[in-house]
Design a protein around this nucleic acid. Structure first.
Length: 637
DNA sequence: GACTTCGTAAACAGTC
DNA sequence: GGACTGTTTACGAAGT
């Protein structure tokens, strides 16, 4: 393209033109530059600009989108009508996420209806068999019941399979927040762990066919088969519940969460009782009130072979669903990650550590880049519009940089993403340069080190080096906040925080747009929090490690989490600023792939103790030293 | 519509 | 002389 060629031919430009004076050169060269800029810019940026105005939803719109639930029909049809790539191009990751969630809700509803019907039929058969077999020996009856339970289980797994197929075709995935609720809590409510040994004693018949059937259906459950079959010690059981305390109607020992998608529970109701009927799997006996239900529960669902078998089946169902949920979540992460990748980039996620791993992100969460600027974006980097996904052009107005997301926390959260994905970070050059400088113990970097930081932190900046390096130099010179300091080893650049804050638009309260963005960002945060909480509650073991769900943890990973927006708009808790763990980039950027002068990058990683600038007297403005401590409460502008 | 911010291109000078 | 660094100007796009 023109940009490339222009960059390449800079050096080969006729020197004669350079002889022109600055002013005339501007007129002449300015015209040329303008033409080149327009042409190059047009070639380079138009895709981005076009994408910006192409079906891109603003965060607020997306929020509205979700609140109104209006686009459900659109959301449901689009996966079938569009390829994932098309969807990804049209929809930003948060929109995709919203789409997925809506589709999941619908899927779950369908699945529940189907499941209900199947259970009805099977239970009918079961009852028929029970009546017919009353004269039969108890053992025979138990065997038949078990056979039915197995049939039920297989049916359920077929349903799961069906759902999964639908999910894959429709780009839908089970969400922990949804799937874990109704499905996972059931066994906890119904099964007493102390009964588990009895429940699973002599089992094997129910478990094996379940697995087999699943495998035959093509499900890849091999990785979790051990979990599925290790029922003797279920990975997750609720705290000891008294199975026989049910008669007193005490639901306190039971998990209060229920299948809220299909029933609206009234307070004080029993988890197994809803809409006037018993919710015991396959029962649905009508009960006028809770008392009658309790009676029914005690008589019909007492501890006997049938109830035990049903519990067993339900446990298997839950186990399978949990396993499947984990797998599908992982798959979703991989898909999302892939959709953010350039197809031509084979490398980034081919490594063992992928986005699905908890260590893919510094906070340990399996989340694609997130940001406050892209509000409902649990799965996408801030301001990472589709425009900036693949385009090499500039994504102007990096809103998250300005208003919502602290660059440090953003980078901390999405470090891996930016490092691997060829995605332009939604921050201005000035913000990035400043971040690079502030991440170092000395708060100073040479130009080349800044270059290295860019290439190390962002895959995007491993291309078009001439362009962005020029921009970096331009920004360094242009902004007064960047102070050049002569050092022993040459010139280093430091940040004058006061100047930096000064240049930022101080009015956060006045602009409705800013407020809107803020609200969007906050709502995103809430969503993200709930998403993480759901993940934590789910059977995602990787997410249950301590500190991973701390919303402030991400921001505390970097020294200046409160920097970008200034104190007034910092949505994150201030606890991170009290004693921010000072992590050097190398501490959270393992797997650093520095292709350009790696040795030099290492060379400047001076070990921990902040010895202060090598030349305190000359290394940077004196106010820099204390600025970080001043920042939380200060209003510099 | 004016102004501001940002990204990009480019010219140019100084230094190594 | 070439590469790198730093400064400056100009322009277009987008947001305020």
């Amino acid at each position: 393209m023109m940009v490339e060629s222009a960059s390449e031919t800079i050096r080969s430009a006729p020197a004669g033109q350079n002889g022109v004076g600055s002013i005339s050169g501007q007129a002449d060269g300015g015209g040329g530059a303008g033409a080149a800029g327009a042409g190059g810019g047009g070639a380079g940026r138009d895709p981005a600009a076009g994408a910006d105005s192409n079906g891109e939803m603003s965060p607020a719109e997306l929020l509205h989108f979700q609140q109104q639930q209006v686009p459900v029909s659109v959301a449901m049809m689009s996966p079938q009508m569009l390829t994932p790539q098309q969807m990804q191009q049209i929809l930003s990751p948060p929109q995709l996420q919203a789409l997925l969630q809506q589709q999941q809700a619908l899927m779950l509803q369908q699945l529940q209806e189907y499941y209900k019907k199947q259970q009805e039929q099977l239970h009918l058969q079961l009852l028929t068999q029970q009546q017919a077999g009353k004269q039969q020996p108890k053992e025979a009856l138990g065997n038949k019941q078990l056979a039915f339970q197995q049939q039920l289980l297989q049916m359920q797994q077929l349903q799961q399979q069906h759902l999964l197929n639908l999910q894959r075709q429709g780009l839908v995935s089970l969400q922990p927040s949804q799937a874990s609720g109704p499905l996972q809590t059931l066994p906890q409510a119904a099964v007493c762990p102390t009964d588990l040994p009895q429940l699973w004693k002599g089992e094997g018949a129910p478990g094996q066919p379940a697995e087999d059937s699943v495998k035959q259906e093509g499900l890849d459950l091999t990785g979790s088969a051990t979990t599925a079959t290790s029922f003797a010690a279920p990975p997750k059981v609720s705290p000891p519940l008294s199975h026989h305390t049910l008669p007193n109607g005490q639901p306190t020992v039971l998990t209060p969460r229920r299948d809220s998608s299909s029933h609206e529970e009234t307070p004080g109701s029993h988890p197994l009782y809803g809409h006037g009927e018993c919710k015991w799997p396959g029962c649905e006996t009508l009960c006028e009130d809770l008392g009658q239900f309790i009676k029914h529960l005690n008589t019909e669902h007492a501890l006997d072979d049938r109830s035990t078998a049903q519990c067993r089946v339900q446990m298997q169902v839950v186990q399978q669903l949990e396993i499947q949920l984990a797998k599908e979540s992982e798959r979703l992460q991989a898909m999302m990650a892939h959709l953010h990748m350039r197809p031509s980039e084979p490398k980034p996620f081919s490594q063992p550590v992928t986005v699905s791993a908890a260590d893919s992100f510094p906070d340990g969460l399996v989340h694609p880049p997130t940001s406050a600027a892209a509000p409902v974006t649990p799965l996408r980097p801030p301001g990472l519009s589709s425009a900036s996904l693949h385009s090499g052009g500039p994504a102007r107005r990096r809103s998250s940089d300005k208003f919502c997301s602290p660059i440090s926390s953003e980078l901390a959260q999405n470090h891996e993403f930016y490092k691997n994905a060829d995605v332009r970070p939604p921050f201005t050059y000035a913000s990035l340069i400043r971040q690079a400088i502030l991440e170092t113990p000395d708060r100073q970097l040479t130009l080349n080190e800044i270059y290295n930081w860019f290439t190390r932190m962002f895959a995007y900046f491993r291309r078009n080096t001439a362009t962005w390096k020029n921009a970096v130099r331009h920004n360094l010179s242009l902004h007064k906040c960047f102070v050049r300091v002569e050092n022993v080893k040459g010139a280093v650049w430091t940040v004058d925080e006061r100047e930096y804050q000064k240049r930022r638009p101080p009015k956060m309260t006045g602009s409705p747009t800013l407020v809107k963005n803020m609200i969007s960002g906050l709502s995103y945060g809430a969503l993200n929090a709930s998403y993480q909480a759901a993940l934590a509650e789910s059977s995602f073991p990787l997410l249950n490690s301590p500190g991973m769900l701390n919303p402030g943890s991400a921001s505390s990973l970097l020294p200046l989490s409160h920097d970008e927006v200034g104190a007034p708009v910092e949505p994150l808790p201030s606890n991170g600023s009290s004693s921010p763990p000072r992590l050097s980039p190398s501490q959270y950027s393992h797997q650093v792939q520095v292709k350009e002068e790696p040795a030099e990058a290492e060379e400047d990683r001076r070990p921990g103790p902040p010895l202060g600038p090598p030349n305190p007297s000359t290394a940077g403005p004196p106010e820099d030293r204390d600025l970080e401590e001043e920042l939380p409460g200060e209003e510099l502008s």
